[in-house]
């Protein structure tokens, strides 16, 4: 380990520790805010894990998020908490494998539409089941999990996701992703199973997203499909990841934090115009910073020093 990377690891750990101690000196409001923010940091990072290298734009985020939350609501009374989380992850994994096998053949806009449709389909299925079979629409979640507990779990998940994303960047899988991004024909002639790689990434990303939904579920006490399958979650995740830049380890995180705070402020102060403002911000980001703020910052920075920045690569930052 070089001195520089040792420093980075130390910094990462210190920040993580400081964040973990937050509930001891900050108030309830800050913890609630941090739960939302950490949740979106994980969502955006997990989203970019799959969509960054493959360029598949997924709007299925909320499908998995909602599956996580619903699994918890169904199982919370029958299983110990750890097993509930495991079950949620498993359900997310199975759905991801089935959906992935069926759809990763779709290219470009077809995948976007399908992924959006999937989220709606899952919501409709859950609604139909609850209304016709269970006979109620919403469900109560009584779990002895405090908001501090939720925050810590999300923080651990965030750290694990970032670590995982970093590790991929320097593994054979990371190389496979770069090769696929460059030229799928060469990738496959070198022995890379492209469909397999995409499916693996999609599944990992989906499981992490499912866990975010599962961990956050106890926060609400009462959930119903329109809450946990709200498509805005998918759009926000996507905008955050795009704003920060999907090709860099820290990109999604750096996009998620400011946007989350901005949206909190907007929804508190302009509740009626919130969706319109959201749309405008989305358009602005895609047009002004198509590669994300990190890439733009590096470009400006390197212009000043007169060097050219090599094309994006994941995981170089830690």
């Amino acid at each position: 380990m070089t001195l520089k990377s040792f420093g980075s690891v130390l910094f990462f750990l210190v920040v993580l520790a400081a964040l973990a101690f937050l509930p001891f000196y900050a108030g309830e409001y800050v913890v609630t805010l941090m739960i939302g923010m950490t949740g979106y940091v994980v969502l955006a990072t997990a989203w970019a894990l799959f969509s960054g290298p493959t360029r598949y734009i997924s709007l299925a985020t909320v499908a998995f998020f909602g599956i996580g939350a619903y699994t918890v609501s169904v199982l919370s009374e029958t299983l110990p908490y750890v097993l509930v989380l495991l079950a949620a992850a498993l359900v997310g994994l199975v759905v991801a494998l089935v959906v992935g096998l069926a759809t990763l053949r779709l290219a470009g806009v077809y995948f976007v539409i399908f992924s959006f449709g999937l989220a709606e389909l899952v919501r409709q299925l859950v609604t139909w089941y609850e209304v016709n079979i269970t006979g109620t629409l919403g469900r109560y979640i009584f779990l002895p999990v405090t908001s501090d507990g939720i925050y810590w779990q999300l923080l651990a998940l965030a750290a694990a996701t970032l670590l995982f994303s970093w590790a991929i960047g320097r593994s054979r899988l990371g190389l496979a992703l770069k090769v696929i991004g460059d030229d799928e024909v060469v990738a496959s002639h070198c022995g890379i199973n492209i469909a397999g790689v995409k499916l693996a990434l999609f599944s990992v990303s989906a499981v992490i997203i499912t866990l975010v939904g599962a961990i956050q579920a106890p926060r609400w006490t009462y959930i119903e499909p329109s809450m946990v399958f709200n498509p805005t979650t998918s759009f926000l995740t996507l905008i955050m990841a795009l704003l920060g830049g999907v090709d860099r380890l820290w990109g999604p995180l750096l996009g998620a934090i400011p946007l989350f705070l901005l949206f909190e402020w907007l929804s508190a102060n302009f509740p009626n115009h919130y969706p319109i403002i959201l749309g405008l911000i989305f358009i602005a980001i895609v047009f002004v910073l198509p590669n994300g703020v990190l890439a733009a910052a590096e470009r400006i920075f390197s212009k000043r020093r007169g060097v050219t920045v090599p094309a994006a690569n994941q995981g170089g930052a830690l």
Partner: peptide
């Protein structure tokens, strides 16, 4: 020619080694 443009010359060759017969 199909080069892998975002990789270095050596990485282009290492790709074949990483996923070829001997991994």
């Amino acid at each position: 020619v199909r080069a892998l443009p975002s990789l270095t010359v050596a990485q282009n060759v290492e790709t074949a080694l990483a996923f070829g017969r001997h991994k």
